[in-house]
Simulated scan of single mutants.
Amino acid sequence: MNVPRSVIGSVFCVFFVVSYFCNKYVLSVLKFTFPTLFQGWQTFIGALLLLLSGKLGWVEISTIPRSAALAWLPGSLLFVGNIYAGSRALSRLPIPSFFTLHNASEAISAAIVKITQRERMSWMKMFSVHLLLIPAVVLPHYDPQFDLGGYLWALLHITCVGAYRVFQKKTSHLSDVEQQYINYFFSVLLLAVAAHPTGDLIAVLEFPFLMSYKFHSGCCASAAFSFFLLLTTFKLKNGLPLEQTRRWVFLAKCLASGLSPLVFSIQVTPEILCCFFCSHAGEALSVYSEGA
């Protein structure tokens, strides 16, 4: 791997870890559990920065036909479910637990493909899928910080992620940048409409950190780092084959999981550690099977 690719991958890992840590800080430490507003803010800033990036030539955004945009709307709806449920789950679960459950979305994707397309998987791929699914199923039984709501939101999150991944592969007439552009604007509109019915718009007025410097800096940092993570993800996908991109994603998840106990409180037992290890081992095997 040449130096520029290594630099892009390293920068991606940094933004990945810092982005998740900022989100976790706002959601768990500051307890800003209003996902329609939190994710609406992030997607609004992301849409503006993505539009600016297109004007500056950092990314290529061509004119999107109306028919293509309408055909992509189911993907945007899954994207909203992904980020909304993901915020709920991340606010309640430790980062290593969140990734252990998130990795199980690979099993959701495999099940959808198996049912709809009847594709046969290699034994290695099948084994890796089970190695990703089993820790996610076992984890709640041994979690000393068990939170039923967190696990239910995580279940919705991985369902949306798995279905989105399959839908994305089937819909190839839009680039990743164009897909995300539609996702952002659809999310802003949908989350803005949902802010009042969910009660977030009224409840946020009583939020104790609303006028806090920590709150404003945390929200701004989370939006900025989330966008830079997206930008480096685009660069990584465009500069590397899929299997090498997945290796960097795997490394970033391992770093975020390993470093999170240094920043956030988490109770770890031998059973929990075994779940974390098996999940990451399953992802490593899945990445290897893709490149084999």
Rank of each mutant, 00 (worst) to 15 (best):
M1C: 05
N2H: 12
N2K: 14
R5F: 11
S6D: 11
I8W: 01
S10N: 02
S10C: 10
V11C: 08
F12R: 04
F12M: 05
F12D: 07
V14Y: 08
F15L: 15
F15A: 12
V18A: 12
C22L: 12
L27Y: 03
S28L: 09
S28D: 10
V29W: 15
F34E: 13
T36S: 10
F38G: 09
Q39R: 13
G40D: 08
T43E: 11
F44R: 08
G46W: 05
A47P: 05
S53K: 05
G57C: 03
E60V: 15
E60I: 13
I61S: 00
T63R: 11
R66M: 14
R66Y: 09
A68H: 09
A68N: 09
A68L: 10
A69V: 08
L77E: 04
G81L: 07
N82W: 14
I83T: 10
I83G: 12
Y84G: 00
G86W: 00
R92G: 01
P94Q: 03
I95E: 02
F99M: 05
T100L: 02
A104G: 01
S105K: 10
E106T: 14
A107F: 05
Q117I: 07
Q117C: 13
E119P: 05
R120A: 12
M121D: 06
W123A: 02
M124W: 12
K125E: 10
M126E: 02
M126I: 04
F127M: 09
S128I: 00
S128C: 00
S128T: 02
L131S: 00
L132S: 01
L133C: 00
I134C: 02
V138Q: 00
L139M: 03
F146N: 06
L148S: 10
L155M: 10
L155W: 03
H157E: 13
V161Q: 08
G162P: 01
Y164A: 00
R165A: 06
V166W: 02
F167A: 02
F167S: 00
Q168A: 08
Q168W: 12
K169E: 09
S172W: 00
S175C: 05
D176G: 10
E178H: 12
E178A: 12
Q179A: 10
Q180G: 11
Q180A: 14
Y181N: 09
F185R: 09
F186Y: 08
L190W: 06
A192S: 15
V193Q: 11
A194Q: 10
A195E: 07
H196M: 13
H196F: 15
T198P: 13
G199N: 04
F209Q: 11
L210G: 11
F215C: 12
S217G: 15
C219G: 06
A221H: 00
S222N: 11
S222T: 13
A223E: 05
L230Y: 10
L231M: 14
L231W: 15
T233G: 15
K235F: 15
N238C: 08
L240G: 03
P241L: 04
P241M: 05
P241W: 02
R246G: 14
R246C: 13
R247I: 09
L251H: 01
A252D: 03
C254R: 05
L255T: 06
L255I: 13
G258R: 06
P261K: 07
S265N: 07
Q267A: 14
T269H: 01
T269E: 06
I272A: 03
C274H: 04
C274W: 08
H280S: 14
H280W: 04
S286L: 07
V287D: 03
S289Y: 02
